[in-house]
Every structure is written in structure tokens, then in C-alpha cells.
Design a protein around this nucleic acid. Structure first.
Lengths: 216, 216, 216, 216
DNA sequence: AATGAATGAGAATTCATTCAT
DNA sequence: GATGAATGAATTCTCATTCAT
């Protein structure tokens, strides 16, 4: 078997937006560009995403696109950032809202929210998830994950007395991973399940039994 | 706000290997090429993966590479196929092996196996997973998923009497998704957890309590 | 060996300023723009010189820049014209001043002046010299050269009796080229020499011996 | 007067050739590409020099061009390097050859050689000289200059007894600069002079009188 | 079978310049 | 007059793939 010499590291690209659009006109331009990016990403994937195609679909000159986005990856990065921020905000708000509710209700609410996050635009979700590593946004995802983890762990810790678990942090990891995955896999493989209430029931059952707070 | 017109569909590419290598030398060449592909994929991602780079790293002429692989995607496809087949085989073997064991033991075994699948070469796992949709192998993954699902559902169905669940198929979905995700997220975000027995304990606890077969 | 077919000629561009700035404010704007042009030219060369960069560095909108300069080359042309006019004026004035002086003194004075021309801002000198052909100002330089040549030739002709030369015009060519080059090469390769009086001594020695008017 | 903030440094570009052409075919390709580069450079200048134009004129695909030259500047750099090496070699050989000859003869020979260097292809000479700073080859020119300087200084030092000069190094500087400039300016402004023996006579007169070794 | 020179479609990106506000 | 958003022609350069040797 022939051997294989060493190779150098992975290039990453600056993806910070070029200038904040000030006037209404430019804000519209940016929105249109991102909308076109999303549409092409869904239909053709990252390989089919060309800046020229985006500009054309957006009805904007290629120059205008580059006025606001320094390169192709910045387009996708912007979409990802938005999505991350949205999910993050949703999670924080919802967690705060259910903090005092009875566990079965709280769990069901969080699961429903997670599923809804994917149900809204599963296509875009999927595509953006795929692009995350390539755009160098794994770090942001990890942060998001870690943030959620801490919140959930704190919540479990606070009401540990009611629960059957020993290590809230480990439990939080297991729970967050499971719930996210159930929503994600449904979106990926069986979109029909996303609207089936039985899925929520079943996931809730798993979590509540695990925590020792099941209804029945 | 400007509107956005329609666009056409996604191209896919034939990725079946060109010829089966019969001689030892050819097999070696193919192996070297795939090894180089894996290394570049890990270090540089799909964007850094160029057929010329693969050929050079493999110490093979570009012409030879094309003798065995009709195009770039075929390289990645080959790696993915291998990985899928491996995982598939592992899962089937292990499931058969634990079919008669007490549930707590069976569950723990399957979880350990899943985690081990990722622990072995998490880098390559991750990269290949990322490439799946692009290479048009989502179908294969879905098949794999579906196959596992059926097996697990059948197993749950067969021993339904011992279990606290109603719908074995839905339960299988929830379980498979959760266990896979726990392993995958650990590999992605907290590799240290992959070797922490407590993770297996906790995941096992969740599953057994859910199924109503917990030890304690 | 493959052969090589014919190609068409070089484009040139109008570089006459758009309007004479009359008000003080406009004059200031023009000055600021030219100062920015010079700075960028020095730091980044002509390739780094973009009209947008000039405008930004000058703190002026790109639109305003185009109010005063019809295109990019006009910016550089303006700097070159200024520099040429300055050098031209200096040379004429100084030549008139030394016309009646003893040759050794006159020669030394002209050499010093030439060197001083470069010592003042060698960086800008160099960059502008480089740009001359591109901006289509070789003609102006040739004129300048020719003008100086004629003046010097006339001066040599007028006092031919004191001199060891036959052909004043040819001598003028040789002298002007040499003196300019000594200053220019010092600026380019050995800036320290620009302030070394020994350089002036040596150059003066060469010229006066050549002319047969050396002191010693 | 508005003030002007700081800006960052000058980018330079790697210009080392990509791969040595091994086969005869590729050597021919490289030669054809460089010939085309020279022709376009002469006719259109660096701004008119596009890689596509070069490839087309050379009758070679753009891809082939990039196989051997990593970028546009590398094309020019290659031409410059060749020219520098040529001049350098000529100078060394000729200086060695005249080292023992009587000064008037030696001086005349060196001046003729210098002029011939430019007379051969004055157009290309001029264009390449212009491109030197942009291509980042000033360093190489300075080296060349310095090398010649040392050789000439050594020669003057060795035969100092015959000469009217005190500081051989300073004299060398003055001489090298003057002779180069006479040839260069003739090429630039008065190409007709390049073939006029009187120019060589006059330059020789200047140098020999300066050194105190004039014939008459 | 192997080689590697050659190909060229196609993509990203820049920047001089215009013009609506 | 000034502003700066928008334009788009023009260029550089890559890389999958072919094919003569």
C-alpha cells in the first residue's frame, strides 16, 4: 500500500457583511438578495448557488450584491446567522415561559416548539444545516448548543427534587440531543410526522418517564 | 419589495465506479486513492477536494484516477457507501445478537455500539455525513434509517408485552433518532463524552425508563 | 514553434480636468483629492489606486471626485503635470541664473539642484516616473527633456570657446542624461548618497573634466 | 484642508513559475506564451495585458497558461528575470574581457555593449523597465546594479595608479549611472542616436577625461 | 494501463463610472 | 453641489475532464 504525505490546513473566508444598509432602498436590496439566496440554495444546493444567479434572481446587479456581501459564503452565513439567532431567541423565550409550569406541560411545550422550528421551513432548515460546517459556523452552533444546555441544566438543577435524575448536566445533554434529533430526523426523513401529534406525545412520554414525572 | 421568479431543478451525477479492480495492484491503487480522498476531505472539506490534489496525494496520475472513478463525486460516494454498509452491518449483527437478551442489557449494548461507531473516526464520520446530501446519497441514508427502524420496531413489537409503549413503530423512531443523536452530538460538540461511561448510563436510563424496563 | 499573429494598438484616455475650481472650498477639495492620490500611489502603486479608495481617503464622496476629475488617469496626470512644471521651472530659473557664472560653479549648482529635485520627495518622484508612460505623458517628458537639452546646448554653444567639446548638442545630451541619472539612481538605490556632498563633488569633477574646465 | 488617515501596505504576489516544463511540447508552450506576453506588453502595455489575450495570441488554452504561470504578474516577471540575467551575464563577461586592455579601449567597449543591450529590442526593454517596480523586482535590479558597481569599483581600484580619481567606489557609481542612463535615454527619447557612433565617441570622451586617461 | 499536458466552460470578484435622490 | 447606491463590463483564475503519447 502506497503511503500518503501531509497536507496543509483548511482555508476559511471572511464572511462579515460589507456595509450596513442605511437607506430604505438598500435594506430592500439586501432582503431581496437573501431571499434569492435561500431559494437557490433550496433548489440547487450550494454548488448551484452562484453569485450571478443570486443577483439575477434578485433582480439586482452583481455589483450591488458585492456591495453588501464580500463573497458567496457571506450570503449563506447571513442566512445561517439569522436562523441561529431566531432559534436561540425562541428557545430562551420559551424556556423562561415554561420554567414554573408542571413538568409534563413544560416538556410538551418545548418539544412542540422544537418541532415547529423545523416544520416552518424544513427545506431551508435542512439546507442551512448542511452548510454550517462549510461556512465555518460550527462554532456558532456549538455556542447555541452550549447555551441551551446550560439553561436546561439550570432548570433541571433548580427543580431537581421533583426529578429522578442524578446529574442534571448530563441529563440536559441527553435531552437536548434527543429532542433536537427527533425534530430534525422527522424533517429530514419523514416530514409527515412533523404534523402528527402522536410524535409529540411519544417524545413527551420518553422525556417525562425518564425524568420520573410522567402523568399516568 | 422586489419579487423573485422561478428556477429549475438540481443536477445529479452518475457515481458508479467504472470498473471493478481485479488485480492486486489495482486494488491497492483504489485504496490509496480513497485514503487520499478521505484525508483531503477531512483537512480541506469538499471545496478543497480536487481530483488533481487527490491524485497527487495518492501518488497516482490524474489519468489513473479517472480509470477507476468516473468523476469527483464518485470518490466521495465510494467512501460514503463503505461507511453506510459498515454501519448497516454492525447494526444488523448487533441487533440480532441482543434480540433475546434482557432489555436493559440489550439497550446498553446498542447504545454502546452506536457511540463506538462515531468514536472510531469522528472526523471522517462528520465529513461524510456532511457530504451525503450533496452526493445524492440521502436516499441511501433514508434506507439505512428505515431499515434500522423496521428492525427495532419488529423487536419492540415482538416483546411488546414487557414494554410500556403502545405504538412500536413510533417508539422505534423516537429511540433510533435519540440514540443516534446522542452519539452524533457528542462526536460533534463534546468528543470527550464519547469515552465517558456516564453517557452510556444516562442514555440507557432514558431508554429503559421510557420502555418501562428500567432496572431499579 | 507556434507562431504569433498581429494585434491592435494602445488605447489612451482624455485626462484634462473637468472644471477649474474657482471657490476656495473647491480648491481645497481638489487638493485633498490629489493628496490622497499621492499617498495611495506611494503605498499601493497604481494597481492599488482605486477611485473609490481615493475618495474615501480624501473624505469626499465618489461623486464629488468625478466632479473634478473625469477619470482615474486624470488624477495621476494632474500630479505628473504639476511635478513636470515644477522641475521645468526650477531648471529654467537656475540655468538662467548660472549662465554667466564660471563653469565649475555653474556645473556644481545645476547638479545640486538636480539632486535636490529628487531628495525632496523621492517616493513620490519614483512613483510618478513609473506612471508616466501609462498615463500617456511620455510626450511631456520628452518635451521637458528636449527643452532642457536645447537650453544646455545653447549655453554650451555660447561659451564654446572655453570648452573642450566639438558638438554642443551631443555633449548636452550626454551631460543631461548623466546628471539626471546620477540623481535618479541615487534616489532609487542609495538614498543616503543624496545628502552626501561627495556625490556632488564627484559628479562635478566628471563634468568639468569632460568640458575641460576643471578647477585643478 | 481636510486631513488624510493612514492606509495599509502594498500587496505583492507570488510570481514563481508553477512547474518546470519537462517535455519538449511543454517547453514550446512556455516559449510561445512568453513571446505572446512580450508582444502584447509592447503593443498594449501592462493594462492591456490580459491572460486571455496572451493565451489566445499564443494559440494556447487559458488553462495551459495557468499550468505554468500562477498569475499575470508571473508572466512579466519571467520576462524580466530573463532580461536581467542576460544583461548581468553580458556585463560580467565583457568586464572580464576588457580588464587588461588599455582604458580608452576598455571604456569604449563597455559603453558600446551597454548601448547594444538597449539597441537590440528597445521596445521590450522600455516596457520591461517600466514594469519592474510593479512586479516587485526592484530588488533584483538593485542587486544587478550593486553587482556591476562592485565589479567596476574593483577594476578601478586595481588600476588606480593610472587614474585621476580618489574614491573608486564613488567613481564607479557615477560612471555606471551615467553610461546606463545615456543608453537608456537614447532608447527612450532618441532611438536614432543608438546607432550613431558619435554618441559612443562622446560618452567615451566624457569617461576617459574624467578618469584622466583620454587619448588625445 | 499509465501518464500528464492540454482544455475551456464557468465562477467569483473588482472597480470605474453613472445617476437618482 | 454633494452623495452614495447601483451598475455591469471586464478579468482573473480554477478545476473537472479528455486524450495524445
Amino acid at each position: 500500500m502506497k503511503t500518503v504525505p501531509a497536507i496543509s490546513g483548511r482555508r476559511q473566508v471572511k464572511t462579515t457583511p460589507r456595509k450596513r444598509p442605511r437607506q430604505t432602498r438598500s435594506k430592500e436590496t439586501v432582503e431581496t438578495i437573501l431571499a434569492a439566496t435561500a431559494r437557490i440554495l433550496i433548489k440547487l444546493g450550494f454548488d448551484g448557488l452562484t453569485t450571478n444567479a443570486v443577483a439575477e434572481l434578485a433582480g439586482v446587479s452583481i455589483g450591488s450584491l458585492y456591495q453588501y456581501f464580500p463573497n458567496k459564503q457571506a450570503l449563506v452565513a447571513a442566512l445561517i446567522e439569522r436562523r441561529i439567532d431566531e432559534k436561540n431567541a425562541n428557545t430562551h423565550i420559551e424556556l423562561a415561559r415554561v420554567a414554573q409550569q408542571p413538568f409534563p406541560v413544560a416538556v410538551r411545550t418545548m418539544i412542540r416548539m422544537t418541532i415547529d422550528n423545523y416544520a416552518e421551513s424544513p427545506e431551508l432548515s435542512r439546507v442551512l444545516i448542511e452548510q454550517v460546517p462549510r461556512i465555518g459556523r460550527m462554532g456558532r452552533i456549538a455556542e447555541l448548543h452550549q447555551g441551551t444546555l446550560l439553561l436546561v441544566a439550570a432548570l433541571l438543577e433548580a427543580r431537581k427534587g421533583e426529578l429522578a435524575i442524578r446529574d442534571p448536566e448530563m441529563a440536559a445533554f441527553v435531552l437536548v440531543a434527543s429532542i433536537e434529533a427527533i425534530a430534525q430526523r422527522a424533517a429530514l426523513f419523514q416530514p409527515a410526522r412533523l404534523t402528527d401529534p402522536a410524535l409529540i406525545d411519544e417524545a413527551t412520554a420518553m422525556v417525562t418517564r425518564y425524568l420520573g414525572v410522567a402523568d399516568g
